[in-house]
Design a protein around this nucleic acid. Sequence first.
DNA 1: TTGTGTTTTATTGCCTCC
DNA 2: GGAGGCAATAAAACACAA
Length: 439
Amino acid sequence: MVDVDSNEMHSEENKASLDNNKKRVLKTPAQLMALEKFYNEHKYPTEEMKTQLAEDLGLSEKQISGWFCHRRLKDKRLSRDETCANGRQDRSSGVIQDRASGLGQDSCGSTKDYRYVDPREVESRRLSGHDFPAADITREHRVRYTERVVGRDNNTSSESSSSLQDRFSTQHDDPYDMETSRYVTDNGVFSPLNSKGTENMGYKPSGYLKVKGEIENAAITAVKRQLGRHYREDGPPLGVEFDPLPPGAFESPMDPVHEPSIGGDAAVLHSPDTSGVKRQSSPSSRYEAYNSKLSSQYMQQEKPVRSPKIGQRSKASKSVAKYSETHDTERGLVMMSAREEKVDGEFKAMKDYQNPLGVMMTDEKAVAKQGRVKFPQREYATNLSFSQIPERKNQIKGTAMEMPSSFSEDETAETNSSVVRILQLKDDKLGRGSQITSL
DNA sequence: TTGTGTTTTATTGCCTCC
DNA sequence: GGAGGCAATAAAACACAA
C-alpha cells in the first residue's frame, strides 16, 4: 500500500521532475485511475477540465494533455490491432460468432473496416454506448491497468474465480465508489471476497464445453449450474415442443452503426418495455453480451496472429492464465471496474438504441473545443483514496481473464432470477409461456 | 541475474481548425 | 498565427523467460 503522503510527494515529484530533468515519472495508480475514469467519459477534455484535473491530480496541464493524447493514440492503435485480429480470426476459424460480437466480425471484413473509421466516430460511439471493438479495448486496457493497481498483493486467495463472481451481480454508477464500498473495510483494507462459489460447484464441462476452453465457457457453465436440473445437454425434454419462432425473430438489424451489440435478445431490445429491462440490469443480458464478446476474444488468443501486438496479447493471455490461478480476491476489484464500464456502456447502448445515430453521436472533440462539456464533479480525483490503491507493480496484462468462471450463490440466484425475467419478457412478447419451464 | 520484449511517458514536428 | 490534436520517436520502467 502506498499512503497518501507518498503519493502526494510523488505527485509533487512529477511536477518537479518535469521542471528539473527529462526523466519520465510514472503516474501513480491513483492518478492513472482518475485519468482513466475521466478519459472513459471525456476523450477530449476541455481546457478547464484539464486544468481541474491537473490540479486535482497534482500534475501539470501539459502532462494531462499529453496523457490524453497518448491515451487516444493507444485506443486507436489497439483498435486497429483488435479489429484486424478479429477479421483474420473470422476468416480463419469456422467458429460461429455471436451476433453480438459481430462488430469485430466485420471489422476487417466486407461490411466495414473500423481501421478507416474516423476515430472521432469511434469515440462518439463509445460515448454513446454503442458497442465497438475499441470499447473492448478500452476495457481491456482498463483491466490491465487496474490489475496492476490492485493485483499486487494477491496472496489472499488461490481460488480462480471468486473475483468474477460479482461481475454480474451488482450495478453501480461509479465502479470506484463501488470498489471502495464493497471491498474496502473501514480500515481501508481490502476485504476478501466470498470464494465459496468456486468450490461448491465442482462442475466439469461437458459436450461442447469440453471442446472449448473452460475459461471461455465458464459463463456457459454458470448458466448450466443455474439451470440445474432443468438443464439438458441433449435438448429439451421429450414431448416438449417449442413454438415456432415468429418471422424475423433472428433478424435483428445488423446495422453496424445502430446495432447495440449487447448480445441481448432482440425482442427485448426492440420491445417498448426495453426501458424496464435495462434498468433492471439483467445479469443475463450482460452475461450474453459478455459471453459473445469473450468468444471472439478467446479465439484470438487461441490462434495468435503473427503480429507484434497479437504476440503481446498471446503473452498477456498466458499471464492472465497464470494470474487467474492465484489472484482473485482482489482481482474482483479489477473486474468490477471493467465490468461496470462495460455494463455502463451496454446500458447506454440500450438507452441510446432508439435514437438515430446522427442524434446520438456527439463529436466530443468539437464540443470540447467549444468548451461546452460541463466539467464533471471532482470525483475523479477526490473520490480516490490513495491509501486504498496499492503501489503499482506486477503488471499483469490480459483480456480473457475477465471471464467469470464461477458465481457465488447469491449471484447465481440473482442471475437466475434475471434470466427468468428476461425469458418471461420474451415469452410475454411471443405470447407463450412454456419455454421457461422447458428449460 | 540478465536479456528481451512491452508499456508508458515525454518530446517534437506536422496538420487542421478557428 | 495560435491552439489543439495526431503521429513518430526516444527513453525509462516494468514483466517475464532463460
